[in-house]
Nucleic acid binder design. Sequence first.
RNA 1: GGGAUUAUAGCUCAGAUGGUUAGAGUACUUCGUUGACAUCGAAGGGGUCACAGAUUCGAGUUCUGUUAAUCCCACCA
Length: 876
Amino acid sequence: MAENISKVYEPQNFEKEIYAKWEADNNFHTTADAAGEPYSIVIPPPNVTGQLHMGHALDETLQDILIRYHRMRGFNTLWMPGCDHAGIATQAKVEESLREEGTNRYELGREKFLQRVWQWKEKYGSRIMYQLRTLGASCDWERERFTMDEGCSAAVKKVFITLYNEGLIYRGNRITNWCPNCNTALSDIEVDHVTEQGHLWHIRYKFKDSDDFIEIATTRPETMLGDTGVAVHPDDERYKKFIGRTLILPIVNREIPLFADEYVDKDFGTGAVKVTPAHDPNDFEMGLRHNLPQVKVINNNGTMADGLGKYSKLDRYECRKILVEDLKAAGYLVSTENHEHAVGHCSRCSTTVEPLVSDQWFVKMESLAKPAIDAVKTGRLKFVPERFTKIYINWLENIRDWCISRQLWWGHRIPAWYCDDCGEMTVAENVDECPHCHSKNLRQDEDVLDTWFSSALWPFSTMGYPNETAELKKFYPTSTLVTGYDIIFFWVSRMVMMGLKFQGDVPFKTVFIHGLVRDEFGRKMSKSLGNGIDPVEVIDKYGADSLRFMLVTGNTPGNDLRFSWQRVESARNFANKIWNASRFLLMNLENFDAAFQPADEDLTLADKWIISRLNRTAKLVTENLDKFELGESARLMYEFIWSEFCDWYIEMTKARLYGDDAKSKSTALYVLNYVLEKSLRLLHPFMPFLTEVIRQKLPNVEGSIMLAKWFEGGAIDEVAEGEMNLIVDAVKVIRNLKNEVGVEVRKKSEVILKPANTDAEKVLKSNVNYIIELAAAEPVTFAAEKPQHALAGVIEGVEIFLPLKGLIDMEKEIARLTKELEKLRKGIAMTEGKLNNEKFLAKAPADVVQSEREKLAAAQEKISSVESRIEQLKNL
RNA sequence: GGGAUUAUAGCUCAGAUGGUUAGAGUACUUCGUUGACAUCGAAGGGGUCACAGAUUCGAGUUCUGUUAAUCCCACCA
């Protein structure tokens, strides 16, 4: 069964093929009635705006690891894939391409425009799904969903109407964040506050019936055109006497009242605030309290409104400039000071947001938020790492109503109809005639819903809601949500609220939070910086397994991670190492009887040792996966395979494989195969392709590794591990000594061993072959006395001598041993310090004290032996 | 104005529940190419665990404060 296997690992040769085979064999698909406890994950649906970036690759890799792990453990495992329509973002993309064609959405009209967006969706949606396949994601593709497909749209309508009927959704004329560039309202969390250097302008407002004036301070002078009052604090001694009088608004010459309101901070600015109810949220509230009119002076597109004379149609910032000049010229401007303040920007396009009054739809959040807070407090929902719990709760406790209407075309249209005849509004799924007056003159609301409204329903809309399906019954609540900390507010919290409201349970039991993928310099990857790296480019170069391994190692849950080509390369080298270790085994497998089973007594110390190490590793890997410490699990596998299996065990088997003892050879091959095959299974969630392609070549293997049973590990053989430690340490000391005197490690040299006790002697004598082979020690003899002209090394259990005649510089050797002695004495001083401390003896646990005593004894033994060695050399 | 995270080897990072002389990868130095692998092997140098206190027999690990960096939240015009 000689296998032809290339000398180096070339993932390009097999990854695509293997994925196609998995898919063709239907390995990703499951049904609600399949056997096993349910384990389910819904994918955070990528936006159809473009292609996957490195952040997706991380998110998807983590999910795939959890999915593959649970599938192997025998769970009925479902990974639900899909895309998000990403309303505002996708619409912006399509509008951009229209602009390049010299047209726009208004020319096209709503219907034709939407056709264009659907074309875009088809193109990029399928591209994203292709990229996910390239990465190895084992999604249940038969269930692929889209937030605007029929089912999800039905869920959206049902939820909207239900919330409306319960009074939790309302329409209102409110002040909201408006993006003049995107031309739509935004929710509070779609506004980013950026600290900017601005000015505070002090302006005089004169009283109507006297020459007195009051000085106000503002950061936005252009809004004064819409002022309908000035407010001061009721207890402000400076202004008390003026309260109730009338002011003349400069430039505009409108009469406005001076009134008192608790909101005003006496210590800020001049203590007098101009009030513009139509363009400031606080002023809006004050306006309501004091019955002030709202005068809208800024249009939706950011220009000044009609009827403002020379200021009309000016851009809002241009107007500010001119107005300040005019105020100055007319003597109203008192002073201008620098002022740092936070300014809201559209999170999508960075345009400065304009607070505007308009008709919008809102969700009342308070009653929805309460159960979502309780779910975390009672432990029904857990965050990993835990610290995100606090952030989540804090946000929900201070939540405000959610503006869900967007003045866009791409999205779920709001199911509200207005009757042109009687003016009534009807919220329902389908309305043919007005239920109030039976008129047929109905217009559907022009607005669409915030993208996150449909995303909030994702865990149950994808499983068939509003129908009661077998999937919902089996897989809801889902097991784990894997996502970045950047969308806890946007998405996680809203899913929890909607899940609790409409399914009566949390949408997932655990939220596994990861960080952002940054570039090699720690900067955020972004289009504007042009520092983004396409995962597909990395996969083309190094393979999906290498990318996955790089993404999952070297970081801890919740923390950002840096992309590093060097680390991708090192992951690729690891893959190559496994590839070659397997190649080594396969090359030696000629004439191997696949049915061969060694008896326990045929196992050598090395065999028992590596099996024990495998068992220990499997246990740790499993434990860490269960704790979401995926990186630690991957690291453990790296260490086991490279440092123990390859560097030591494989080397130890070589003599047997090239030797004449057929049974010993078969046993070695059996153990090599056994350990490799188990290791591949443990590594499969991390490196699915490599582990599959190699395992397929091994004897006694049937079926895909992704359907193989997880290996949990068996008994640990402490005796074998202890004995092998002695051998390994001895080999290391010999190599070390050779290196120090410049003798080639592979050059055969005589070695003399002086065991410290009969146990050690027994172990060394029966396993001396390893020392001979791995340290090129020949001949190895045992002695009760120290030889004279020799290099010496001392480890616990044995003293080791290399009688390298002619190569040893006595002075140097004494110096080297003296240095070692110092090191040992330093260690002993510490241990003695502890043991001489009565409090330590009294308070430390018995086993700690005991182990300190043993340490001391062992160290003292080493010291005396090194000391006597030095004496001996001096006396030569 | 609140809050979170981070600070460990030149670089990137690990170091539950406090307990050998603090680890890995990478980089660096020395040595090594005939059979798994130079995408490799052997050996080595390199750290006052940001700073200052506290708790403890014992602190990289717990607590308090300080400093620095990053991020989130926040309607003082």
